[in-house]
Design a protein around this nucleic acid. Structure first.
Lengths: 133, 133
DNA sequence: CTGGCTGCAAATCTTTTGCATCCTG
DNA sequence: CAGGATGCAAAAGATTTGCAGCCAG
């Protein structure tokens, strides 16, 4: 079988490692996070390759890039529309499935043609609530 | 923007320049944007001072930091709760006043204690709609 | 005089890019 | 051999930090 998938790029061992790490991952990892984990069992992995692969996946709609974290980009293998719960203490990010979709009242769109909506719910997660401040 | 800034820190000329530039500003400028504008009429302004002042304002709730732009932090002198319309082509960001506040259904909070909500509406602004792609 | 502020430069951190090398077909 | 992929290192951008000098109270 050809080492090529249906969307036009080669599935090299490095890319497979990244793909399998991301598959089903709910941690919204950064490029660095991904690199650290994968390079343990895959010493030749390069950070540049991680970024390359993430770009590739982004372009092919395999992942989405989150702008939630002010310090770095995070990536989400869940490309279905959904929202996020963000802990303001530990920066944990959890998915919130939609099912309560929300539209901007038409008189408020300022002439924009709306193509998507993302809601961020900020709060304190159960873990952090246990310890004061 | 809150004008209680006398409490706790000095209003130096540099800080006043930054404050007056931000006051009422609807452009959601980055630190660099602020620096570029102010340093024209204020040649001794330093980028570090811009960052220092922005940090100070952030701590005193005079501004909020937006995580909307993947490439850099942007700052918003409007500290009232509100949401944003983001043009995916030109990256323009416009305010959307609330008035349709939105709560996460209780059974979805995953144990988080919600403290705030921010909605991002993505779309194409009137200007960008004029020109194809 | 003292402490806070400024501005410069250096340092950090994240992300991108250039390029030589290495497959793989 | 050709083209894509990898990995290293350098570059680029944004932000932070260290520090000496300055200024106001």
């Amino acid at each position: 079988m050809k080492k090529e998938n249906n969307i036009g790029f080669k599935l090299t061992p490095q890319r497979l490692a990244i793909l399998s790490y991301l598959d089903g991952n709910k941690d919204h990892p950064s490029a660095e996070d991904i690199y650290k984990v994968i390079s343990k069992g895959f010493p030749t992995m390069s950070l540049a390759t991680v970024y390359n692969t993430l770009d590739l996946l982004k372009k092919h709609n395999g992942i989405s890039e989150l702008t939630i974290d002010p310090d770095k980009k995070r990536f989400d293998p869940n490309t279905e529309p959904h929202h996020h719960l963000i802990c303001t203490r530990c920066r944990r990010i959890e998915d919130v499935q939609t099912g309560f979709d929300f539209s901007l009242p038409l008189n408020n769109t300022r002439g924009f043609e709306i193509t998507g909506t993302h809601i961020e719910f900020y709060g304190v997660c159960p873990e952090c609530k246990k310890s004061p401040e």
